[in-house]
Write a protein that binds this DNA or RNA. Structure first.
Length: 238
DNA sequence: GTTGAGCGTT
């Protein structure tokens, strides 16, 4: 209980971010106001498109406040950015499984605090969004499915692959319009449950698997003297 | 040691 510091104090939420905005860009812009500890722009896990929001974490709350003031109402790419204090720090791996989809994550925790010039954010406090659920399209419950699974959702068991679904990598033959959610929903009539339960690709094949060896090992290998050629092998050509 | 799938869109 010693450290009574609200993470939100240093974390800022940037709304109305242009699709062209990138973490790098946001970071660069935020750094001008203070020391940015971290910047993150959440993107759709499936589509990879940014949602238009970004998070900027400052090392000091005062910097965050300044940045908030500076970046708020700032025009980026022709759009007016809206900067507000974040409500919570980063999501924890444990929350990943059950966060969001559930719906009520209990934002009530957010105390008005601050000055009160919050854009009504404090008022609602996430209680009632207003525009009726922010359904991105795909059901997050899907992912939560395994969480609800009686099996016993094991986070550590599941490797959190940081690799987003690089759909662009593969060439689309046709009908690429079909969103991912549809793909897994109707693409396979007799879909296998194990496949559709999590976005994370199965442990198909891990590249650079053999390279798992330590560099030190390689040295050992190189160390080996070439058995092919033996100096004792009639070194006398003539 | 940290984590990225974070609170959006009027």
């Amino acid at each position: 209980m010693s450290r009574r510091e609200q993470p939100s104090r240093c974390s800022l939420l940037v709304r109305n971010l242009p699709k062209s905005a990138k973490t790098e860009d946001l970071r660069y812009t935020a750094e001008k106001y203070g020391q940015v500890r971290d910047v993150y722009i959440p993107k759709d896990y499936y589509t990879g498109e940014i949602r238009g929001i970004g998070f900027v974490e400052f090392t000091e709350p005062q910097d965050a406040d300044e940045c908030k003031y500076g970046m708020d109402r700032m025009m980026m790419d022709g759009r007016e950015l809206t900067v507000v204090f974040a409500q919570q720090g980063r999501k924890k791996p444990e929350e990943f499984g059950r966060a969001g989809g559930g719906g009520d994550r209990g934002y009530g925790g957010y105390r008005g605090g601050g000055g009160g010039y919050d854009r009504g954010y404090g008022g609602g406090g996430g209680h009632d969004r207003g525009y009726g659920g922010r359904d991105r399209g795909y059901d997050r419950d899907d992912r939560r499915s395994y969480g609800s699974n009686r099996r016993g959702y094991s986070p550590r068991r599941r490797s959190y692959s940081r690799s987003p679904p690089r759909r662009s990598s593969h060439r689309r033959s046709h009908h690429d319009d079909s969103p991912p959610r549809d793909a897994q929903r109707e693409a396979s009539p007799a879909r296998h449950r194990e496949r559709s339960q999590s976005p994370v690709r199965s442990r198909s094949r891990s590249p650079a698997r053999s390279y798992s060896r330590s560099p030190r090992r390689a040295e050992d290998r190189v160390r080996s003297v070439s058995p092919r050629r033996s100096y004792s092998r009639s070194p006398s050509p003539r």
